[in-house]
Design a protein around this nucleic acid. Structure first.
Lengths: 109, 109
DNA sequence: CCGCATCCAAGCCGATACTG
DNA sequence: CAGTATCGGCTTGGATGCGG
């Protein structure tokens, strides 16, 4: 378990959720993975203007936290696919609410 | 509007939500304010081991983002009460989901 | 009682160049 | 194609002490 998550444990369940999901690009990536499995490059183009390094870090943390599954195919050229674990799939209602709330927030301000 | 929120606008509504709610202690504070209005000291004791400075900053950002209302009473000793705006109240289902998910996450790992 | 000022440490995130 | 290496700025959160 990553340190931020462990620290949040001592506070409150909502802080645990924020510790897992709170990073930049993380929920954007999850949002696309809720639709279907993506290759790395696909995901990068989908989420927008993110550098490979930054997206890699976000995905690695989500993998450590048990949200994302990473599958490497021993091919040339290399292929790596990202998909959601069962735990990741369980985020669907949260992502839907956050998307709706963010949309309404923008319209309200 | 704060810079992180503006930057998230260009990406996706979920990133907007994370930009507003993603800071440490923020949703813990909102969680207690969903129950009732709190004075500053009450809130500090409720959320746990947070320094006044850190909690103040979190609340100020939530105020800037339109989530929290701050009411100062011209008394001695001073009294400051925090409550939720209508926008803040609209977070209730999200906070409930995040709390449930965080709880399940801890049990699953 | 509330919270600001100052200073500080850590970590996040980005740009660029390079590799199996 | 899917990353890693390296460097660096900037934001975030914390400790401590003072002020209205």
């Amino acid at each position: 378990m990553r340190d931020p998550v462990r620290a949040a444990l001592a506070v409150c369940p909502v802080e645990v959720s924020i510790a897992v999901l709170g990073g930049a690009w993380k929920l954007s990536a999850v949002r696309y993975l809720l639709v279907r499995t993506h290759r790395f490059g696909e995901l990068q183009r989908a989420v927008g203007d993110v550098t490979p390094r930054t997206l890699t870090r976000a995905l690695r943390e989500l993998e450590t936290d048990g949200i994302v599954r990473r599958t490497v195919y021993a091919e040339v050229p290399p292929r790596v696919e990202y998909s959601l674990t069962e735990l990741g799939e369980s985020l669907r209602p949260i992502v839907d609410w956050l998307e709706k709330w963010g949309h309404d927030y923008v319209n309200a301000t």
